[in-house]
C-alpha cells in the first residue's frame, strides 16, 4: 500500500532534489556532449554562426581521419607498455612496504612512515631537475626507464592506502600462524595478499589511469616521437592541427574512452580510495 504525501512533502523530498540534481547533471554532462558533437561535424559546421548543434549528417570519417593523422595505435601501444610495467612495479613493492609498516614491529618504521607521508607533500618540482640530471647522466633520456623505475620502489600514496587497510586486519590472524612457525614472508604472501585483492584492484586502476594521463613525465624524458605516449601524441597533434577542432575532438574522445570504460567497470574501486583518505587525520 502506498501512502500519499502532501504536496509540500513531495516538493521537499523529491521535486526540488531532482530539479537540482537534473540541472547540475546536465551542466556536468554538457561538455561531453559538446566533445562528441564537435567530433562529428564538418569543418564548415564548426565555424558557422548561428551555431549548429546537431550536424545534419554525422561525420564518422573524422575518427578514421584522426586515427590516420597521428600514429594513434602506436602511441596507445607505447602507453599500454608503460602502464603494464608500472602496474607490475607497484604491485610488487607497495604491499610489501606497507606490510612492514603495519604488521612488523621494528625500530625505524615510524621514521620511515613519517618520511613517506612527508614526501606526499613535497612538490615534485623540487626533485624534477636533479632527477632529470641524474637520468641524463645515466644515459636514460629517451628511454622508458625514468618513467617506470619509480614504480618498483612503491608510490607513497599507495603505501599509505595499503597501510590503512592492513591496520584493519585482525592481529590474531598472523599471530596464530607465527606460533605455527610460518615465516613472515609466508604470512604476507598466503594470508595477507589474498585479503588485499580489492585494494590491489584500486592500485591497478590508479596506476593505469596515472600512467595513461601523465603528461609532464613523458614530456621531460621522451624526445623521439616514435616513443611518445598517447598524451604527448595528442599535444603534438594539437600543435600541428590547431584549428581542426573536429579532428582534435575526435582524438581527445578516443583517448578518453579507455578511462570511461575503466571507470564504469571499476567504480567501486575508485570510490574506495576516496573513502579511505577521509580516515586521514
Amino acid at each position: 500500500m502506498r501512502t500519499k504525501h502532501s504536496f509540500g512533502y513531495q516538493l521537499r523530498h523529491s521535486i526540488i532534489p531532482y530539479a537540482l540534481l537534473g540541472a547540475g547533471g546536465l551542466v556536468f554532462l554538457f561538455p561531453f556532449f559538446w566533445l562528441v558533437l564537435t567530433s562529428l561535424k564538418t569543418p564548415e559546421d564548426i565555424f558557422r554562426l548561428p551555431i549548429v548543434f546537431f550536424p545534419e549528417k554525422f561525420q564518422w570519417s573524422n575518427y578514421t581521419t584522426a586515427l590516420k593523422a597521428i600514429p594513434f595505435f602506436h602511441y596507445v601501444g607505447n602507453t599500454l607498455l608503460l602502464c603494464a610495467i608500472n602496474i607490475v612495479g607497484q604491485l610488487f613493492s607497495a604491499p610489501l612496504v606497507a606490510y612492514s609498516l603495519a604488521k612488523i614491529q621494528w625500530r625505524g618504521r615510524n621514521l620511515v612512515f613519517a618520511i613517506i607521508v612527508g614526501t606526499m607533500i613535497l612538490p615534485p618540482q623540487v626533485m624534477m631537475i636533479p632527477t632529470y640530471i641524474l637520468f641524463s647522466k645515466l644515459g636514460w633520456i629517451n628511454t622508458y626507464l625514468p618513467l617506470t623505475i619509480g614504480s618498483f620502489f612503491g608510490a607513497p600514496f599507495f603505501i599509505f592506502l595499503l597501510r590503512q587497510f592492513y591496520m584493519g586486519i585482525p592481529k590474531e590472524l598472523s599471530e596464530a600462524s607465527k606460533i605455527d612457525g610460518a615465516s613472515e614472508f609466508r604470512i604476507y604472501w598466503q594470508m595477507m595478499l589474498p585479503q588485499l585483492v580489492p585494494i590491489l584492484a584500486t592500485i591497478v586502476l590508479f596506476t593505469f589511469v596515472g600512467t595513461w594521463t601523465d603528461f609532464l613525465g613523458p614530456l621531460l624524458y621522451l624526445n623521439d616521437s616514435n616513443k611518445w605516449t598517447l598524451m604527448l601524441g595528442l599535444q603534438g597533434f594539437l600543435q600541428e592541427h590547431g584549428a581542426q577542432w573536429e579532428l582534435l575532438m575526435a582524438a581527445a574522445a578516443l583517448s578518453t574512452i579507455p578511462m570511461l570504460i575503466l571507470f564504469f567497470f571499476g567504480q567501486k574501486y575508485f570510490m574506495r580510495a576516496g573513502s579511505t583518505m577521509t580516515g586521514f587525520k
Partner: peptide, 22 residues
C-alpha cells in the same frame, strides 16, 4: 628489525637513490 627493513627496502632504496640523493 631485519625482516621489517627487508620488507621496506624497495621504498628505502628508492628514497635514497631517487629521493635523498637528488
Amino acid at each position: 628489525f631485519l625482516t621489517g627493513f627487508l620488507f621496506a627496502s624497495p621504498w628505502i632504496i628508492g628514497f635514497l637513490v631517487l629521493g635523498l640523493f637528488p
